[in-house]
Nucleic acid binder design. Structure first.
Lengths: 205, 205
DNA sequence: GTTAGAGCTTACCAATCGGTCAAAACCGAT
DNA sequence: ATCGGTTTTGACCGATTGGTAAGCTCTAAC
């Protein structure tokens, strides 16, 4: 058959698939894949379970759809790290973007974290084929900055890990942060200042 | 009744309870509470499912036993942070201890992370009643160090978060780290050097 | 070696899991 | 109004879940 049997989705299709994915993001990000149930997703989406299965081929289909959506946006900030920009400013901008993502997309962060936490059964291929080259490329960029004296000597690999860890911490450990900071409404701004200062001090030659 | 109806556990009791808890740590840390099954734990422990339930009151009992064991050892490095020691050395020693724990007790780290990740349903009381006071106390200690000029100005709360995040990252995201570093056998030493340099630069007045 | 109790297993249970199916309800174009 | 296709539902299925009942086996103290 000629590959053109893809109908454009109807209005209802778009709405309900969106509802399901949003509900599934809630459920998967807080219970993990095995801990989540179709009934929970159905209830969160305001639809019946068989109706969920009308729009998706099954639990796994929903999960991989969610992950595929996520992985693109997740590596985007690293992609846009500009080799031709000013070294320190580029790094600090990257930190800031990651921190804002932790605030604005905490569910996505937790979904990814939970997936890695349990051994990344479904994202290991992505890690090896997509993230790995991107990681190596940006490590090389940072290394040239260091070699040119624009940044203080630093291991690019562990620098990136530190950026990921410190920023995503505010999404993945949000409950703990919230308790220990007693719901301080300025916590995001304080965190931004702290990380800015930390990486500035680390990287200023 | 006089409170002394606690028999000392037999040799077999100690051995099998230990086997079960070790197996359960494996299973819970990689699948989360809801994702783990008693059959998995039983198989990993080399015992039958009903036999598991002979030693524990149920799935939840195993889980809380594991968490109670964990929480003590988890806050221990922070407890031993010595207010009378030399400021920077104390912090760096704390970082080093946390990093070594990430290497030596990755399952415990992932168990805790997974619990926080899903909203900490079973550890929120601990966070509020035990960790919170300890956190405030050590924040105060760091603040006095800053005030006395022994450390560069820093937000103690976010400093501690950064230490937790960067060290635990190597346990919780071990799969990703392993892929991106191509199984580099020196990764632990490199991480130690990097974190040492980072926090030294951040905190040296 | 006997025996009382600790340890263990087989068989089973109700509840919940992901998923199916046929029929009903709905919708938009005519 | 009607008709064809889309959407939705209630009833149901086999597999798996956490947990139980009852009896068998082994161990340790005498």
């Amino acid at each position: 058959m000629p590959d053109g049997d893809v109908k454009k989705p109807s209005r209802i299709q778009r709405r309900n698939r969106g509802l399901i994915l949003d509900a599934a993001l809630d459920v998967f990000s807080t219970h993990g894949y095995r801990g989540a149930t179709l009934d929970q997703i159905a209830e969160a989406a305001g639809l019946s379970k068989p109706n969920i299965l009308y729009y998706f081929d099954g639990k796994e289909d929903i999960h991989v759809t969610l992950l595929n959506q996520l992985l693109g946006t997740w590596q985007d900030p690293l992609v846009t790290l500009n080799p031709d920009g000013e070294a320190l400013a580029e790094i600090l901008c990257y930190v800031r973007r990651k921190l804002d993502m932790a605030r604005d997309l905490p569910r996505e962060s937790r979904l990814f974290a939970g997936e890695i936490l349990r051994g990344a059964p479904r994202v290991t291929p992505y890690l090896a084929s997509d993230l790995q080259p991107l990681f190596d490329e940006k490590c090389a960029v940072i290394k040239t900055w260091v070699d040119k004296g624009q940044l203080a000597p630093v291991d690019p690999r562990h620098l990136i890990f530190s950026i990921w860890a410190t920023t995503q911490h505010y999404a993945d450990f949000a409950v703990q942060v919230k308790v220990l900071l007693k719901d301080d409404p300025d916590s995001h701004k304080d965190a931004a200042r702290h990380l800015d200062a930390m990486f500035t001090r680390l990287l200023t030659p």
